[in-house]
Design a protein around this nucleic acid. Structure first.
Lengths: 343, 343
DNA sequence: TTGTAGGCGTTATCAT
DNA sequence: ATGATAACGCCTACAA
């Protein structure tokens, strides 16, 4: 039987439910042993739903991400979990990068969690303040919405990362530099593109629109984008890939076309790969601490929850993790790709 | 304000809570527009906790896995989610491969979910039937406990997979075959080792105990185990790695020691890598459909939940997904590794 | 169609 | 230290 209640336990022992409840809360009770036995024999488990309802607290937080299969988000979750400590259960929920699912999930989470860490799908939500509807503490991680200033956030320095990558390639002598970035309505997609374009501008290199490819953060998108770049009449001599999955897709495309790295083309990834030493040559990449970014988000969320519980005003906190460039073997001075024959 | 209740809405409109409740359930109500407005203005969200408590149903299922950073479990989750359909919210919870956390999580989940898909940490739980305590529907995926026959399960044919790998190496002429397997108290760790030993026995190859290494399914474990094998006075000419992460660790060790694959050593992985084409040579591997295995688990769970709701007896269902060998470039006939000088 | 009221399982506030 | 009892927010007969 699954449904023994606190009442059943109380009756079996011959005490009131209050006493059992006290025992459960760690108070000292005379018949503690009998109660313990009864709980064991009846397989009694406190109903979390009832507890939530009564106490208002859930001892649970959720992390809502667009793609759980992306190792980046898995690492974010992992870091957040490590920072949550034993008092909180951490739930991971996948929105599948579907806008309406994300909204539905947030609604369903309401009342079952004390707070949410969220990587929202888009920056421009309908209405000025979509997320304000949810009265629960929210911390944005990696991505923000239009009303981001009203919420805590833990971002990465996207502009700097893209700048470092672009500068590195320029320093090597590249001018035909392309970027495969994520959707421009997402924070990392937009800001990484911005870091790229602003650096080109500062270095007096004309921006070629066809070198700025808006893709979708997926491996397939990275593959297709790289193929497209290679089919250009004047293909780039260097490419920046806008996230880990697109780096992999792009590398797969290059391998398939038997284009040598870095002899034929240089490539640099935003976000390091998980197993960087296994591929040859190693991918030069913009590194940031995934795990730590998740941990920071959790700390921010717990602070926010504590503030709310104490009815304390706490202005939105905006954190940013730093990036740096890791040089491996995927970049070299340009030699130019042989002009491609059509088809 | 976060805490508008159904009562607030009812009062504002001037109807009873029952009417609002009916509106929420989709019934036709006279003042539907007014109610809708009030809900919007008050930012009212139904409390999931209260609903759960009342109805007993949660429209939620959880997947509890030992390591969310392992792409295999991410894929299981992804597949399960795809099979869950829009009516269920799917929660992912990470036990972090810590026994007591797993138990705590299961306890906390009780009353907040309609069922659980679980990859338990160990086969031998204390007491004959540890999980029977939890009255909620459980489906085991990839791993089982001692009382597995009482529960639904979706496993992979571990023995066959290990046999295929071992046979493949034997057919190439290898006799000094090692295996790096997972903990023997886990299902895949134990059964993959069994498939290996039984095949050796059938093929009349003496089992060398030092060639059977019990590791821990982690990248670090795979690395250390491979290092250990290489330090053996008579190192194996072929190695089977017991999961994806250990394959990566083992490959990293080989790369670091500059041992050539397959010239110096053959290697074959249980479970394919995610990006098999990027590493050179490609890893010959035992393939199984991760995503489909997760989907199958979800279907089993939903069936179990439905049966419970209908008070129908449903004997435990045991499913098994098939495996096959994918040949790439990491295996060749043995030439023997040069005898290693100590240190 | 609508309102009233009881109860889901707990916790917390009273007395005792 | 213990017991009765009133919420928590919602749903659902039962009546009207």
């Amino acid at each position: 039987m699954s449904s023994a209640t606190i009442t059943d336990v109380a009756q079996r022992v011959g005490v009131s439910v209050a006493t059992v409840s006290r025992y459960l809360s760690g108070f000292n009770v005379r018949q503690r042993d009998e109660i313990e036995n009864a709980i064991h024999e009846l397989n009694y488990r406190p109903s979390a739903a009832a507890r939530n309802l009564k106490s208002g607290r859930t001892a649970t937080v959720a992390i809502v991400v667009p793609d759980i299969s992306n190792p980046f988000f898995a690492a974010i979750a992992s870091g957040a979990e490590a920072a949550a400590g034993p008092d909180y259960m951490v739930l991971l929920v996948n929105s599948g990068a579907v806008r309406e699912r994300e909204e539905k999930i947030l609604g369903q989470l309401f009342g079952r969690v004390d707070g949410v860490i969220l990587s929202p799908l888009q920056e421009d939500n309908e209405g000025p303040s979509f997320f304000s509807k949810y009265g629960l503490p929210i911390v944005f991680v990696d991505r923000i919405t239009a009303d981001a200033d009203k919420f805590d956030s833990v971002l990465v320095d996207n502009v700097k990362g893209a700048r470092l990558a672009t500068e590195h390639l320029i320093a090597l002598g590249h001018e035909k530099i392309a970027i495969i970035t994520g959707p421009l309505h997402t924070t990392p997609g937009r800001l990484r593109a911005e870091g790229y374009t602003s650096t080109l501008k500062r270095e007096k290199i004309a921006l070629q629109k066809r070198y700025l490819i808006e893709s979708d953060f997926t491996r397939e998108g990275g593959y297709a984008s790289m193929v497209k770049l290679l089919e250009d009449p004047i293909p780039p001599t260097a490419v920046i890939t806008g996230n880990n999955l697109m780096s992999i897709g792009a590398l797969e495309a290059l391998k398939e076309k038997q284009i040598r790295i870095p002899e034929d083309i240089s490539i640099i990834g935003f976000d390091d790969l998980e197993f960087p030493t296994l591929i040859e040559p190693g991918l030069t990449a913009i590194f940031r601490p995934w795990h730590e970014q998740g941990a920071e988000a959790m700390r921010a969320l717990l602070a926010r929850i504590a503030a709310q519980a104490a009815h304390t005003e706490l202005s939105p906190q905006h954190h940013m993790v730093d990036v740096h460039l890791i040089e491996r073997g995927s970049c070299a001075p340009p030699k130019g790709l042989p002009a491609r024959s059509k088809g």
